[in-house]
Design a protein around this nucleic acid. Structure first.
Length: 402
DNA sequence: CCTCCACAGGAACTGATGGCGT
DNA sequence: ACGCCATCAGTTCCTGTGGAGG
């Protein structure tokens, strides 16, 4: 009469684990060599040579779709340069920031400052004028005679923030060297789109785009090779079926050529296979993994929604396939039942397009002549009413309307 | 051919929040 | 204590639009 938990743990203990080194399957893991990217790595290194020679800061722009290894290559090259330069009296300070994680310009600048060693006291998250934050960051560099390399990932996002606020932080960054008596700033911008330049101030382009590197998409064969290398290191021998490997590569390549996705898919498939006590990772595990990743993503976005976003989701669920106007009145009804103050039409329209961006619903503009123009909103195929109910059933306010 | 519907979606504003500097 | 500066969710006001129906 064993406890079910014990039984589960016993099984897990005695069961073979297919994965021998989990870290290698993390997408943040930097492999010893980055395959198929020698050319690009060389260009990156080349354009950063001036720093190594201590002559002058030089900026660089890197393009490539997500999962093409651009960030990895840049990090790799930079850490090599840093290594070489360590012994000299010209140390380099690496600062990496991913703009997608920052919702505001000051947040971005503060994260740069923090990495330079400014404490919360010296550089508070909020309360300071942008110019003041900028000044403090520059002071730190000046005082410490720091030679900094700012790696700005997803720089497109930052460019959007700049455009929205009208504060030309990027321009100031490119010109900051003129304000520094000691130390220097080198910028490495990483962008997902080739067209993002159009969004930038031409003065920024001229100094930031001195050098450019383009990372092309991986093709299925390259993805397969990348996966093979990781499999060799992370899995025990002969534990991934050829068919599963091919499916991983094919799935990732067909969507985007995104190697990160392929690796994530492989990892989850491996975990599923282990849990099922399978002795090998099989194609069906990959299928299940793809489904699970998708569902997990949906669940977390659904959970991240605010009360009114949730109300809108429920409204769409109740009036699946109807127009903005109909959804709005359904939503207003729900507000009445739950005794919430209703938001304006405009805000709901905006929420609808935000939810669409999250991929949970699809909107289709339809024109009905004299009956005007509207958008029909439909739940995504994998977003069932059942799923929404399950996730929101714990929400006390929503209980009555589910 | 013109009109006019039912919204889409941009822009500018508001008010709360929050912490700094003096 | 008070003003300043920035962010954020939300509001107000607005202009734009393709085609069915007259």
């Amino acid at each position: 009469m064993t406890d079910p938990v014990d039984r589960l743990l016993d099984a897990a203990e005695s069961g073979k684990s297919l994965i021998k080194n989990r870290d290698i399957l993390q997408t943040t893991y930097v492999p010893a060599t980055i395959q198929h990217r020698d050319e690009e790595a060389k260009i990156v290194a080349q354009s950063l040579l001036p720093i190594l020679k201590q002559s002058r800061p030089s900026n660089l722009l890197v393009y490539g779709k997500p999962g093409t290894g651009k960030t990895l290559v840049v990090k790799k090259v930079l850490s090599k340069i840093q290594e070489r330069v360590k012994k000299s009296n010209f140390p380099i300070k690496l600062v990496y920031s991913n703009s997608i994680e920052e919702t505001s310009l000051s947040g971005f600048l503060v994260s740069l400052g923090r990495q330079l060693g400014l404490t919360a006291k010296e550089l508070p998250i909020t309360g300071l004028a942008l110019d003041e934050v900028f000044k403090r960051v520059l002071n730190k560099i000046d005082e410490g005679k720091l030679n900094t390399i700012f790696v700005i990932d997803e720089i497109d996002n930052l460019a959007d923030l700049v455009a929205k606020s009208g504060k030309d932080v990027l321009y100031q960054l490119t010109r900051a060297n003129e304000r520094l008596k000691q130390g220097s700033i080198t910028l490495v911008g990483i962008s997902n789109t080739l067209t993002f330049k159009e969004k930038l101030d031409p003065r920024v382009i001229s100094s930031l785009g001195e050098e450019e590197v383009v990372f092309t998409n991986y093709n299925p064969n390259q993805i397969k090779k990348i996966l093979e290398e990781r499999i060799n290191e992370a899995f025990i021998d002969n534990s991934v079926e050829e068919g599963a490997l091919n499916l991983c590569a094919a799935k990732a390549a067909s969507v985007s050529g995104d190697a990160r996705r392929a690796i994530a898919l492989l990892r989850v498939a491996g975990e599923i296979a282990e849990r099922q006590q399978s002795d090998k990772v099989k194609p069906k595990h990959v299928e299940e993994a793809a489904k699970k990743i998708e569902e997990d993503k949906e669940d977390t976005t659904l959970k991240s929604y605010t009360l009114h976003e949730r109300l809108v989701m429920v409204a769409i669920m109740k009036a699946n396939g109807s127009s903005t106007g109909e959804i709005y009145s359904t939503y207003k009804n729900l507000c009445k039942i739950t005794r919430q103050e209703e938001l304006t039409n405009r805000r709901i329209t905006q929420m609808l397009s935000e939810i669409e961006l999250d991929g949970l619903i699809t909107g289709k503009i339809i024109r009905q002549g004299i009956h005007g123009r509207t958008k029909k909103h439909t739940l995504g195929t994998s977003i069932t009413p059942k799923k929404i109910k399950k996730i929101y059933e714990k929400d006390l306010i929503l209980q009555d309307i589910l």
